[in-house]
Amino acid sequence: MSQPRECASRLSSCVRLLVTLVDDRQPGYTRHATAVARLSRMVGMRVGLDELELEHLRLASLLHDAGSLRLPFPHVGSRWDLPAEERRVWETHPRQGARMAGMLGLPPDVAATILGHHERWDGSGYPDALSEAATPLSARILGVCDVYDSARSGFMDAREVRLSEDEALEHLLCDEVSRFDQTVVGALRDALVDDREIGVLTGMYA
Rank of each mutant, 00 (worst) to 15 (best):
G67Y: 03
G48D: 11
T30W: 09
F73V: 13
M42E: 08
G48M: 12
S68K: 13
L39F: 02
R16I: 05
L49Y: 11
Y29Q: 01
H64V: 15
W80T: 12
L21D: 02
H64S: 05
T30G: 03
L39D: 04
R70K: 12
H56W: 05
D23R: 05
M42W: 04
S13M: 09
L11K: 14
R16L: 10
R46H: 05
R58G: 02
R70V: 11
A66Y: 03
S12T: 14
M45T: 09
P83Y: 14
R88L: 03
F73A: 09
H56M: 03
P27M: 03
R16Q: 06
L71A: 00
G67S: 14
L39V: 08
A37C: 01
G77P: 04
T20K: 05
A33I: 06
L54R: 12
R70D: 08
T30A: 13
M42C: 11
D50W: 15
L11S: 08
S12L: 13
M42L: 15
E85T: 10
L54N: 11
H32I: 05
R31S: 10
P72E: 02
R70I: 05
D81T: 15
S61Y: 02
E55V: 09
H75V: 12
V19T: 03
D50L: 11
S68G: 11
E85W: 14
R31L: 07
L11G: 04
M42R: 12
A37L: 01
E86W: 07
A66Q: 12
V76M: 11
V36C: 01
G28H: 10
G67D: 05
V76K: 01
S12K: 08
V89C: 01
P27A: 01
E55K: 05
V76F: 02
M42G: 11
R10G: 13
R16D: 13
L18R: 10
E51P: 01
L54F: 06
R25T: 00
R87P: 06
R10E: 15
D24H: 07
H56R: 13
H64Y: 15
M45E: 07
G67E: 01
G28C: 13
E53K: 11
V19K: 00
V36L: 04
V19G: 05
P83T: 07
E51K: 02
L49G: 08
L59S: 06
D81W: 12
R31T: 00
G44Y: 02
L18W: 10
G67N: 08
T20H: 05
